[in-house]
Design a binder for these strands. Structure first.
Length: 467
RNA sequence: GGCGACGUGGCCAAGUGGCAAGGCAGAGGUCUGCAAAACCUUUAUCAUGGGUUCGAAUCCCAUCGUCGCCUCCA
């Protein structure tokens, strides 16, 4: 089976064929670091983390680059308001973002380039574009000459003629045509600036990604990703720059995730319609957010609300229910139904994932296995029998990046520390049950629940677990 | 106005030509001292109207609606 990926460039699902066998180069656009990141950014990062994990599971060696845009108008503006150095401001939010990546269980990218550390490469690229006649200097600025690029607009399906001059696009005397975009901006006094052949200035937004991708991954890459709000103009312009310079197709597959929606609109820093990652993590496990992403299609909008968060949380609990131990003393054999389901899930999981990373479909197969495991447990299957299915569940949830660990309870460093005491209480309670002292029995159950310990009385005895 | 994506049960959601996955919630049941969990049973003709086809949620056209982009945005 081959993997199929939806390519924004062709608007089709295509067979995934890499430039080099068994190797994938993937560039994903990271955040502009001028403010706290929100769960929409987290969604994007999660989507590409899941894609990367699956590609690695399928045997590819993935070279993964995610950039930080650490110099631009917003950062400078914000830094002026806060009266701090723009570099420091960016540094602060990069540090914070890295902590979020860690909290969210994101595999570290191979490289995290920053625009300010790649100025030489950026200047080199701009110069190359000028030499090739695709860009021109004007009063210390350098612009990309859009008309010099025959197939400009191919990613977003836009035609140059459609863009009405002066309509929502500033008519700027320094530009030859209104659609031209800045590769290099002359700096104003007090702004961060670097020496260049065109005087002091700083890079435009789009060129940094082209330059960093070129530098770290080469002329051509396999996957270029980001949110679908980047399709135009950002990615369109990246294609124009890189392909004009190299004369070769830039990325083989353009992959875009849908937007996370809050109250019916996309989350957005500029409108303040957002929930920060910090806020989310303070209240929920990281797996909950990942589950939200997994249970939907990465290309579709994802609704964020108390209700959808709650759904994900319960779905996670359900997944975990399969990992509970066998009934005390159980010694039953492998039921036919479980054996069959293990095979079916193993196959179905990969088939779904191969189909444009259909994580919701894969979860469906996983839930089928959850039911079969719970069934087998109810019918008294032995621990080592359940373990066969449970290890498969852990294998696949691992591929999806779910940690599956139970939430830690405050005051205990781990379940092991409290275990002897809980066992003792259960022992005492068993005696109380024999004497039918129900009030005391229930009191122990209730009080333990307050401390996060769930007691369940089964046929073969009482089991307990952390909430 | 232009470009694009989408519209599946109470909610979330998979499914791109052949009897409509899965999760949550609801109802009934098994188990239990009660409970919880788990298990069993149960809930849809796929926005609307046309068309293509032996056959369509799946292809085509139109209409309505939602969202994104066209300006910085994952």
């Amino acid at each position: 089976m081959t993997i199929k990926i939806y390519n924004t460039l062709t608007r089709k699902r295509e067979r995934f064929e890499t430039l080099e066998p068994n190797k994938v180069s993937m560039y994903v656009c990271g955040p502009t670091v001028y403010d706290k990141a929100h769960v929409g950014h987290a969604m994007s990062v999660l989507v590409f983390d899941i894609i990367r994990r699956y590609l690695e599971y399928r045997g590819y060696e993935v070279r993964h680059v995610m950039n930080y845009t650490d110099v631009d108008d917003k950062i400078i503006q914000r830094a002026n308001i806060e009266e701090v150095d723009p570099y420091e401001l960016a540094e602060r939010y990069i540090k914070e973002f890295r902590e979020h990546l860690d909290d969210l269980n994101i595999l570290p990218a191979t490289v995290y380039p920053r625009a300010t550390e790649e100025i030489d490469h950026i200047i080199e690229m701009v110069q190359g574009l000028i030499e090739k006649g695709n860009a021109y200097e004007s009063e210390g600025d350098v612009y990309f000459f859009v008309s010099s690029d025959d197939d400009y607009g191919k990613l977003s399906g836009r035609k140059l003629e459609d863009a009405q001059s002066g309509y929502r696009i500033d008519v700027d005397d320094r530009k030859e045509t209104p659609m031209d975009f800045a590769l290099w901006k002359a700096s104003k006094p007090g702004e961060p600036a670097w020496e260049s052949p065109w005087g002091l200035g700083r890079p435009g937004w789009h060129i940094e990604c082209s330059a960093m991708s070129y530098h770290h991954l080469g002329e051509q890459i396999d996957i270029h990703g980001g949110g679908n709000d980047l399709v135009f103009p950002h990615h369109e312009n990246e294609i124009a720059q890189t392909e004009s310079l190299t004369g070769k197709p830039f990325a083989r597959y353009w992959v875009h995730n849908g937007m996370m929606q809050l109250r019916g609109a996309a989350m957005s820093k500029s409108t303040g319609n957002l929930v920060t990652i910090e806020e989310f993590i303070a209240e929920h496990e990281a797996d909950v957010l990942r589950m939200m992403v997994l249970n939907s299609s990465y290309r579709s909008p994802l609704k964020f609300s108390d209700e959808t968060v709650g759904h994900a949380k319960r779905a996670l609990d359900r997944l975990r229910s399969a990992l509970r131990p066998a009934s005390p003393g159980a010694a039953g054999e492998m039921p036919e139904s479980l054996a069959a389901q293990i095979t079916a899930t193993r196959q179905g999981f990969s088939e779904s994932m191969d189909d444009d990373f259909n994580t919701a479909g894969s979860l469906g197969h996983l839930f089928d296995l959850v039911r079969a495991v719970n069934q087998a447990r109810d019918h008294g299957a032995a621990p080592e029998i359940l373990a066969q299915a449970q290890s498969l569940i852990l294998e696949f949830t691992g591929v999806l990046g779910l940690e599956m660990e139970r939430a830690r309870v405050d005051g205990w460093s781990g379940p092991g520390e409290a275990a002897p005491f809980v066992d003792l209480l259960i022992e005492v309670r068993a005696e109380l049950r024999r004497q039918k002292l129900w009030a005391l029995t229930d009191q122990i159950r209730d009080r333990l629940a307050e401390h996060g310990v769930i007691i369940e009385d089964g046929k073969e005895g009482t089991t307990w677990r952390w909430k």
